[in-house]
């Protein structure tokens, strides 16, 4: 069975993005082992001469390294991903590069109707940057609008069409992960590039 790390992109106690990932964990338990990962205790990203990385970020990087893929659930703050998620991704690409060629599925929930669409498109650009270089599943978007009303008391999605869409995307993601495993050709080179890339000195 495939093993995925599901990153909760919010540092809030009450997050419908966390609810959505929990639902996926439960709903797809026969197809994949989904482990939720929190980012709320990570400090704000700051470079240091010693390139110190918080212990927790190293553990999380190891978990991602060992997993077959990553699911990121992002809210939208001010048309973009939360600073907390941006900061976590910065820690996870600072002297360590667990995302290189790692298959990633993006989900997003929002209270309003747009379902974090703009945050997701920025997240794709971020995941595509040289030090992250994730393999983002193309042409797939899961936007859960009006997320406060989307779940029943047991934490299950209420709307059948939404569930069907999510099931279809997850099925695609499993296939995408399988295909991705055969696309190892450039991985070594990508990893090398990520290691050598430095936002401070591109020589």
């Amino acid at each position: 069975m495939k093993k995925f790390i599901a990153i909760v992109g919010s540092n809030s106690k009450n997050s419908t993005n966390r609810n959505l990932l929990k639902y996926m964990q439960k709903h797809f338990k026969s197809e994949a082992d989904i482990q939720l990962a929190e980012i709320k205790d990570l400090p704000i990203f700051k470079k240091s001469p010693e390139k110190t990385v918080p212990e927790y970020a190293i553990e999380l990087a190891n978990d991602i390294e060992a997993a077959d893929g990553v699911i990121i659930g992002t809210p939208e703050y001010d048309h973009s991903i939360p600073a907390a998620l941006s900061s976590a991704l910065a820690w996870l690409s600072y002297g360590q590069h667990p995302f290189v060629d790692k298959p990633v599925m993006i989900t997003g929930a929002s209270y309003g109707s747009l379902g974090s669409s703009r945050a997701q498109s920025q997240l794709r650009q971020i995941l595509d940057s040289p030090e992250i270089k994730a393999r983002i599943m193309p042409s797939s978007e899961f936007l859960l609008g009006h997320s406060l009303e989307a779940f029943d008391d047991d934490g299950n999605l209420k709307d059948d069409d939404t569930i069907k869409q999510l099931e279809g995307l997850f099925e695609d993601f499993l296939k995408f992960v399988a295909i991705s495993e055969q696309l190892g050709g450039a991985t070594a080179a990508n990893m090398e590039e990520a290691r050598n890339f430095n936002w401070e000195d591109n020589k």
Binding site: I44, D78, A83, D128, I132
Partner: peptide, 20 residues
Amino acid sequence: TPEHNHTVPAALKSLIEWLS
């Protein structure tokens, strides 16, 4: 703003979130 991972630093984004 500098650029980190194709976006603004988390510190700047965090400030803007507080200011909104």
